[in-house]
Amino acid sequence: MSLDAAAVARIARLARIRVTDDEKTHLASELSQVMDWIDQLQSVDTDGVEPLTSVVGARLKTRADVVILNVTRDDVLANAPEGMAGFFTVPKVVE
């Protein structure tokens, strides 16, 4: 098994997804199964191959430095689950 429960706990923490202990065990076997299947890639000879950056053959375009703002603060805050005084709010963060 390529992933154990501890590894699942670590990546779930990085991804900010709560997992119960039962889920950890279950996910460890499920994800290991997927990762073992994915491991077939290791047998491909990729010596000297550049990793693909984009299938688009074009060059990155840039925009002019012009101010365009077509939403108001109300629009930006409209879907927020919680807010106060024009701010988004979250539980207090201790630095």
């Binding site: 990546i11 779930a12 991804a15 994800l31 997927v34 990762m35 990729t46 990793p51």
Partner: peptide
């Protein structure tokens, strides 16, 4: 499941073996 797989293949120590390898095969 996919977020966890994605987080895993990008995480320190696995990035080259998985993500970079995959982008090479994709090429």
């Amino acid at each position: 499941r996919r977020i966890l797989i994605g987080t895993y293949v990008l995480s320190a120590g696995y990035f080259d073996a998985y993500y970079i390898k995959a982008q090479k095969v994709r090429a």
